[in-house]
């Protein structure tokens, strides 16, 4: 092992951890009480639900793909899916602006829209 290897490994880890911590702080500070859960399928918005209301939603498409989205205590998660890899089911519940759960085989993205960004966008438009 050369010195450069350690610099590479250390550098990558430090940069990644710094960005990760910054990301978390930004996400936390940009989440308002009006945050919404946005479901996007294949690049198109499918549904918007308020994050502060408990709900259970079956997202079923004609080709048999199924994801069950649950919102509970201000957190959203996928409780069940019939995709092959089940990565979306294993994702921890999301609650902050910009966080997302992705189901690659179903081209489904569930993300949190914190609300604050939206206002800025409307003003800009």
């Amino acid at each position: 092992m050369k010195k450069n290897d350690l610099i590479l490994i250390g550098g990558l880890l430090i940069i990644a951890f710094t960005i990760l911590v910054g990301q978390r702080l930004w996400q936390k500070n940009n989440t308002t009480s009006g945050a919404e859960v946005v479901v996007v399928i294949d690049g198109k918005e499918y549904e918007r639900l308020p994050l502060n209301q408990d709900a259970s939603k079956e997202i079923q498409l004609s080709d048999g793909q199924l994801n069950i989205l649950q919102i509970k205590d201000g957190e959203a998660f996928i409780s069940e899916a019939n995709c092959p890899d089940k990565i979306c089911e294993k994702h921890h519940p999301i609650s902050y602006n910009g966080q997302s759960i992705v189901c690659l085989p179903h081209k489904l993205v569930v993300s949190i829209d914190g609300g604050k960004e939206m206002e800025v966008d409307t003003i800009a438009q």
């Binding site: 990644a16 690049g43 910009g98 997302s100």
Partner: peptide, 22 residues
Amino acid sequence: AIFAMETSQLIYYLPVLVIIGT
């Protein structure tokens, strides 16, 4: 995946993926 899913949200996973990869 970002191009296939047409979503930039996935970029948020980059730091975690870099750590795992390292």
